[in-house]
Every structure is written in structure tokens, then in C-alpha cells.
């Protein structure tokens, strides 16, 4: 076991939680992420591996397979992001590499993203102030990439459906958090 102590994306020792009105925003540091990009000519094999990993459920365009806190969601043509509990899967990328072999390019993405869980009855109103996605029409299992405060973010609608997970660029975690909290105050 190495000796380095991690900090959260917001720079704390523990995750930050903000409750404003009918919405709660919770920073999450418990997610390991790796991108999976099918290699040319191996797309079918790559999908088979992914489907196998997700009990036969392959995330379609704009969709996620949720198995909290594990998830995989579509990010582009033949591209997915796979998530797993950080505590048990810190080496997710190398685990996937062994599984997918030469059928996919796997890249560690765990610390590329800051993860925020936004939940509560005001969630939809908050999201409406943040990004152009049609959150009212999104249902559990929908995954969209969008722009929040000029930051490319993924928004995943989870179960229960008053909950979205927002993944944004880690270096801008503070700005993203500020934007979300500001919107929460606006609708509170």
C-alpha cells in the first residue's frame, strides 16, 4: 500500500455535501473510470466483452447501464465509459485491459473527472439553469454529454429519477460546483 493521501476534486479530505432547498449536491470520490474504445475491425468483439461485463446489457447511444455505483455509458461511436467502485477497482483500466485485450483501447479516466450527485425534487429545475439538455424528457438510464458553465460534462439520470450524476472536468471541479450550487440557490 502506497503512502500518498488523496484529496477530493474540490481539494478536501472528505467529500463536500451541500443541501439547499429541495436539492442536495454531493461530491463523490468513490468512482473509478476507464474509457473503452473499440478498435477498428474489432468492434463486435469489443461490444461482446462489454456486454459480457454488464450482464448482457450494452449501453446504446445516449444510454447508460446503471449498477450503482458501477455504470457504463455511451460516449461516442464505439466508445463507452466504464465505472466501478474506486475502493475495489482503483486499477480498473488494467483490469479492463486484460479482459478486452486488443479489441479495445482502454484509458484510465478516474481522475479526469469530478463527480457530483445532484438529487431532490428541485433537481430538474436546477439542471434547467445549467445546461441545454432536455432533463424532463430524460429517464433513468439516459446519459448525455453537455456543456455546463462552458465545461464539457456528462449528465446521467439515475434511479431514483430525481437523481442525476454530473461528471465534469476535474481541474474545474470548483467552478462546476459553484455553478451548480448557485443554480440550487436560484431555484430554492
Amino acid at each position: 500500500m502506497h503512502s500518498l493521501t488523496p484529496i477530493t476534486a474540490l481539494g478536501g479530505q472528505t467529500v463536500r455535501v451541500d443541501t439547499i432547498g429541495n436539492a442536495e449536491l454531493r461530491e463523490s470520490d468513490g468512482l473509478a473510470l476507464a474509457s473503452v474504445h473499440g478498435r477498428l475491425g474489432h468492434e463486435a468483439a469489443c461490444r461482446a466483452h462489454l456486454s459480457d461485463l454488464l450482464d448482457g446489457r450494452l449501453p446504446a447511444v445516449g444510454k447508460a447501464v446503471l449498477r450503482d455505483p458501477e455504470a457504463a455509458f455511451w460516449t461516442g461511436p464505439d466508445q463507452w465509459m466504464v465505472g466501478a467502485p474506486f475502493a475495489s477497482h482503483e486499477d480498473l483500466a488494467s483490469q479492463l485491459k486484460s479482459r478486452f485485450g486488443d479489441t479495445a483501447s482502454i484509458t484510465e479516466q478516474t481522475d479526469a473527472w469530478a463527480c457530483f450527485d445532484l438529487q431532490g425534487s428541485a433537481m430538474e429545475q436546477v439542471v434547467e439553469l445549467l445546461c441545454p439538455i432536455n432533463v424532463r424528457q430524460m429517464t433513468t438510464g439516459d446519459a448525455q454529454r453537455t456543456s455546463i458553465h462552458h465545461l464539457g460534462c456528462f449528465v446521467l439520470r439515475r434511479d431514483p429519477s430525481d437523481w442525476v450524476r454530473i461528471l465534469g472536468p476535474r481541474a474545474s471541479a470548483g467552478s462546476l460546483h459553484h455553478a451548480i450550487v448557485t443554480a440550487m440557490r436560484s431555484v430554492a
Binding site: S35, H37, R39, L40, S105, T107, T110, W113, A171
Partner: peptide, 13 residues
């Protein structure tokens, strides 16, 4: 038709 995959890892490391 080149077998190439790209992803940014600027903030990951």
C-alpha cells in the same frame, strides 16, 4: 480507416 483511438487525459494525471 486507421485504427487509432484518442482521448484526453490532461486532467487525469
Amino acid at each position: 480507416d486507421a485504427d487509432v483511438q484518442l482521448i484526453s487525459t490532461t486532467e487525469a494525471w
